[in-house]
């Protein structure tokens, strides 16, 4: 599916463009290089396998995986509705879905607090039902889903719109029902975008910090995810904070690798 559009990349580029581009690249990469240079490799393993690190890592993986599943379950229909359905205010809805992407996460945390907190919009109803969300792992998953959902929706919505509806129309004229068209035609067409959107959502959920610390609190094994553990370790043990940061950098690089792979297949 790849189309070679740029046989001589860079040939039309003025030479000076490499200077600011290089500075930009340094700005992104140098801090990471500097951080990796501070890793104390000798006691990396004990730092990474300490009880608090492993608990935080396990909690992070568990909550991020759950949040990613929620993102797929809610985000795929959202993307399809935004891309295909015609309803008044669709453009506005498209913009509003992006809000968590541009909001500072701490603002998201405050908003979640006033929705699901004990004195929040839904808090009283939830309390009557015997559900307490604040300070629970559920709160972490909610915060992660809130910030990660737009990543999946944008990747998928763009792909669905670009793919067009010709094949779907054909399938429908051949007698396929809407659900069958969706599962057998639409989703396979946008599978690469769905995959990269899912991976991005997982990565965003894994890195979630601001909304979690504002909304969910911080308790080992319950709400203290890896980013919160890093922030706390910094207080007493900077080496441990750097070691744990390295874990997240490795995860991030892996995620970029995965999305690049699926991404090149999906972009025409």
């Amino acid at each position: 599916m790849t189309i070679r559009r740029r046989p001589h990349a860079g040939s039309h580029l003025p030479a000076w463009a490499f200077v600011p581009a290089g500075i930009g690249a340094a700005l992104v990469l140098l801090p990471l290089v500097a951080m990796v240079s501070r890793v104390s490799w000798g006691n990396l393993w004990p730092l990474l396998t300490s009880e608090s690190s492993l608990t935080a890592l396990a909690l992070s993986l568990r909550t991020s995986a759950t949040a990613t599943v929620l993102c797929v379950l809610l985000g795929v229909p959202m993307a399809l509705v935004l891309a295909r359905a015609r309803f008044p205010g669709r453009d506005l809805a498209r913009s509003l879905v992006l809000l968590p992407l541009v909001l500072p996460p701490v603002v998201g945390g405050i908003a979640l607090l006033y929705t699901f907190g004990r004195r929040g919009l839904l808090g009283h109803t939830l309390e009557v039902l015997g559900v307490q969300i604040a300070f629970s792992t559920t709160a972490v998953v909610l915060a992660q889903t809130f910030v990660a959902l737009p990543f999946l929706v944008i990747s998928l919505e763009g792909a669905v719109r670009t793919a067009g509806d010709r094949y779907e129309t054909v399938a429908a004229t051949l007698g396929a029902r809407p659900t069958r068209v969706l599962l057998r035609v639409t989703l396979p067409l946008v599978a690469p975008a769905l995959a990269s959107g899912t991976v991005l959502a997982f990565a965003r959920a894994l890195g979630e910090f601001g909304a979690t610390i504002t909304f969910a609190g911080s308790l080992q094994g319950v709400t203290r995810t890896l980013p919160l553990e890093i922030y706390l370790q910094r207080e007493t043990d900077p080496d441990a904070a750097v070691a744990l940061s390295l874990v997240l950098v490795v995860v991030a690089v892996t995620v970029i690798g995965l999305t690049r792979r699926t991404g090149t297949e999906s972009t025409p």
């Binding site: 860079g10 930009g24 690249a25």
Partner: peptide, 20 residues
């Protein structure tokens, strides 16, 4: 051609960054 440019860019970047 493209590959060589891509390989050189980070080196330029690092040198500039350090000088900066």
């Amino acid at each position: 051609m493209r590959r060589r440019v891509l390989a050189v860019a980070p080196v330029i970047a690092l040198v500039l960054g350090l000088a900066g």
